[in-house]
Amino acid sequence: MTALFQSWGASYEWAWFWSMLIGILVIALPLMLAVAMIIYAERKIWAAIALRRGPNVVGPFGLLQSFADGLKVFLKETIIPTSANKGLFLVAPIISFTVALIVWAVVPFDVGVVLADINVGLLYILAASSLGVYGVIIAGWASNSKYPFFSALRAAAQMVSYEVSIGFVLICVVLYAGTFNMTQIVMAQQGHIFGILNGFGFNPLLFPMAVVFLISSMAETFRTPFDLTEAESELVAGFQTEYSSMSFALFWLGEYGNVILMCALNAILFWGGFLPPIDWAPLYAIPGIIWLFVKMLLFFFIFGWVRATVPRYRYDQLMRLGWKIFLPLSLVFVFVISGWLMLTRYGAVA
């Protein structure tokens, strides 16, 4: 697209600037729409599991429910508690929303269909996702209220704990792929198993890591069974307690943006991203973006399914799972996988 703008007489830098701006809009606007639809889908999944009907009033089959909710939230009054730290109180939801959006810059939708094809893509994702906790901490502190503050402390500890094991899981993937570039990580999965199956997840050495990553990504996005930050039975609504109107909606959009992102990451890192699951020519006739969306929806269904069926963890159980089970397990797998690769791929025995 840069070339197109250049042909219209713009200098390279401005052409680049405008094409990036359009690229951002092309990703961000459908994402917002996807969030609205996916909330509807999730409520339908929960309803089906709980033998209820779910949203079915607004629009055909209740399809417009999320838009009605959005409109309602938009029309509410923004309430700022008098003892709150006003600036930070307003900045917190903006941070959490922005951070959820910026990660999408490096997510590849097909070969070459990515906003920023940088060679540290995976590190960028790790960096950006570690920022997500600031929105929650700042919201909890700036509210100047006890439940949000408890929630913020829980969130900080939880994020830091699970990021450690996520880091090791990502290292396992990088060891196999030999690159940090997201597109190349996907391409490295082509024909990974006997030249037939596309996806690191089919590899017996990496499958346990795929499971650890799936569970950790639920913990990272504060979803049930790890939603201790907004455990309504103890903390009202956690860090969102004092928020209303659009500032609340931004948290909400950011949260679901992150959930969709984690579904995409699960698909991209372990299950072949935009590649079809089987390396068979006719399957490539279906565009890669459709394969990616199908995989993301499958993971989203798993997320919703788990949320509807698994009871919440106790805080010490959460910490135990993160530090005493996932951390040693992923560390052992980094060790085993690097040893296995040295033995088989690089053929170096002393």
Binding site: V120, L123, Y124, L126, A127, A128, S130, L131, V133, Y134, I137, A156, M159, V160, E163
Partner: peptide, 16 residues
């Protein structure tokens, strides 16, 4: 990236 991951993502969180 390391600066952001290590300092912003971990060290500063503990500071805060």
């Amino acid at each position: 990236m390391l600066l952001v991951i290590v300092y912003v993502g971990a060290v500063a969180v503990l500071f805060l």
